[in-house]
Nucleic acid binder design. Sequence first.
DNA 1: TCTTGTTAGATTGTCGACAATCTGCTTGTC
DNA 2: GACAAGCAGATTGTCGACAATCTAACAAGA
Lengths: 230, 230
Amino acid sequence: MGKADFSPIADTTRRAEIVALLRRAILTGQLEPGQKLNELRISEQMRVSRAPLREAMRELVQEGILTSIPYAGTFVIDVTAKDIDDAYSLNKVLDEFAIERTWPLRDQRFFDELDRRHETVKQATRNRDTTRQIETALQLHGLIYEWADNSVLLETWARLTSRLQMYFALHQQARKEAVPAEDVHETYVSLLKGTDMRAAQRHAREHIDLDFEELLSYARGLEQRPSKGA
Amino acid sequence: MGKADFSPIADTTRRAEIVALLRRAILTGQLEPGQKLNELRISEQMRVSRAPLREAMRELVQEGILTSIPYAGTFVIDVTAKDIDDAYSLNKVLDEFAIERTWPLRDQRFFDELDRRHETVKQATRNRDTTRQIETALQLHGLIYEWADNSVLLETWARLTSRLQMYFALHQQARKEAVPAEDVHETYVSLLKGTDMRAAQRHAREHIDLDFEELLSYARGLEQRPSKGA
DNA sequence: TCTTGTTAGATTGTCGACAATCTGCTTGTC
DNA sequence: GACAAGCAGATTGTCGACAATCTAACAAGA
């Protein structure tokens, strides 16, 4: 028997591509929070009928980054300080759990993948590509979820990730100064390679708190921000 | 100004009703795991066109109880012992977190609602209505999530609940003997009213483990169960 | 002036038909 | 008989048009 392990072929439906396009637009901040998505306009821009577009939007509504009001429209979710707070406090709990589950399953492949993703983050940092920096940092962070061997946990993380990426993108977009160029993940990676699980969990929690404080202060600033129309 | 506080009016779209119908059919076991959903047949039965039906199915796919393969069809998710294991182990973690967050927010309204839901479970138990018993027990359990004041946590619980309800329904449907008629929630409720948070958390975890073991033994029995076609 | 009723326009929700794809069977070839 | 090519049939994906609903502007009346 051959040994080639093929990755699944790409989804060939328009719907899937539309989902990807819209998600990217939202997570990178091209579509602002509160903004209404006009079906006719978007479907014309994408050269697609409204049917697959609407199905795509339903998916993103369930994914939690769009919200829908019957006969009124579908909107990018509004971001409040409390939403960010909620997401982060849950993230802490999930992180601890993910590390606990991943810990006994770590092997050489895990460490290799950890290094690989870390390297990708560092590269994005060097290139000053903030969007990609956020994306790769979350992917680095997501490894413990992928390795934890718990499908429900992974799904939960995927949902959370969408929001976190959106929050960070908004934050980066708003603040004037450049992103810190130094590498803030060195400790995290080395702890995941070490032998002290509790220490890794503690660090994950504290590391999160750091970025978190920054995000929150930003979010508190845009409370009562008016919703953007079409 | 008047003091009447109205609840939001019902969703008046076919889509919303279809979602509710399908979800109920899946969670009560009318639609079996692995079964394919034929769009044409269902749309004819519901006297609805395929457009809103497909949108509804997209939502349920994202909700995690349906799965879709392009150009092949949409199916009720398969249930494996590992899925149940995954869901429960995550549930334990979330329970602890929910109790921790709810604890300082408990007030008279909380206790009243707790009693009310508990009473509803007992009533369903007396009536030997197993489907309703599962539903109400999960609602009782869900109170700590509703009270925890964390929207992301609540969403996560909602998703988890769907699966749990499905698992329990399958279990109940499969086993011959009747459901235990006694009340298994007495301790849980009284601990939530008490002053020892750790004890409540511990009990939640152990209580879950109980039903869990039963479910798992059932699920292990139906591994390699063939998927049902149309 | 404020409220209420009406109307036109725009947008979302739904429908029926067509196109693309898959599945299983048949056919032909070796 | 085994196997590949090709052909129905059924099912999903997509489209364009119509129906239902909302919004905002405007007119009529108290």
